[in-house]
């Protein structure tokens, strides 16, 4: 696609999305959109449906109402072939890393290359090593099984797997949770590089406000199934939105506590 004026369709859009599990309403008319080449950060209390929002966009869960559009096309209506093509340009980090525990680290990182793109194994291994170096991991863990890695290292391997095939839409569920500040900074830099230099579109979930300010072009706060605030990182400190104030100041009392 060529560069488009401001009115272009968003890269990714949730339109009036409802999601329930049994009687529990998780999303209630969620409206949210991200333009191509932008980085959106979703913040919100635990259990507010942030991970569910990601999984809906990926077609891993079905919405009860509303639409989810990628490049203006509805995911749910896509043919299997179109869907596979769509996944080809997507990279995902799951909240729990979701590494395949029967495969070694490099086979995890190169999983798409080996199994979907049928890249020769030695080339795939070299690309896995390259992706690992971008999350500050070395060749020494290539042949290790994920079960013997620490939680933070698993997360980084998950990140390497998400970026290994050079996708152009990235989903990160709590990319820096459980990492030391130095590695977290490196991960933030990696995400910024993906978005600013490689032109990817990114949707990240985080509880880490420092990270949110660094990687987000825009921040949206999810509460009670809807977006209750949306704005650039700088406005996090100036807005008088009660939800955001409570979240940023980390107070136990306020509208968010009342709802939980």
């Amino acid at each position: 696609m060529t560069a488009m004026p401001k009115l272009a369709t968003p890269k990714l859009e949730w339109r009036g999305v409802d999601k329930r599990f049994g009687g529990q309403v998780v999303l209630d008319g969620l409206d949210l959109a991200v333009d191509a080449g932008r980085s959106l950060v979703i913040i919100g209390g635990s259990g507010q449906g942030k991970s569910v929002t990601l999984k809906l966009a990926l077609g891993l869960l079905a919405a009860d109402a509303g639409q989810i559009l990628i490049d203006g096309q509805e995911m749910a209506a896509a043919t299997p072939a179109a869907r596979r093509a769509l996944y080809g340009q997507v990279g995902v980090l799951f909240q729990g890393a979701a590494l395949f525990d029967s495969l070694t680290v490099w086979e995890n990182v190169a999983f798409r290359l080996i199994n979907a793109d049928r890249v020769p194994r030695n080339e795939a291994r070299a690309r896995a090593l390259d992706a690992l170096s971008r999350v500050r991991l070395g060749a020494d863990i290539l042949d290790v099984y994920p079960g013997s890695l620490s939680g933070g290292m698993q997360k980084r391997v998950g990140l390497a797997r998400a970026v290994a095939a050079r996708p152009d839409v990235l989903f990160f569920d709590e990319p820096t949770t459980g990492l030391d500040p130095i590695t977290a900074a490196a991960i933030n830099a990696l995400i910024v590089e993906q978005v600013r230099h490689l032109g990817c579109t990114a949707v990240s979930i985080t509880h880490d406000l420092a990270s949110a300010r660094t990687i987000g072009d825009e921040i949206a706060m999810l509460h009670a199934g809807r977006i209750v605030w949306r704005g650039p990182p700088a406005e996090l400190d100036t807005t008088d939105n009660a939800y955001v104030r409570q979240f940023v100041e980390g107070r136990a009392d306020g509208p968010v506590a009342g709802a939980i």
Binding site: V92, F94, A98, R112, N115
Partner: peptide, 25 residues
């Protein structure tokens, strides 16, 4: 047990997003 654990830890979801059909793999 193996497939169930993969479901519980989102490995099956991850596989789908890596363009690999769990029914095939």
């Amino acid at each position: 047990a193996e497939v169930g654990a993969m479901r519980a830890t989102e490995q099956i979801d991850a596989m789908v997003t890596l363009s690999t059909d769990p029914f095939r793999y």
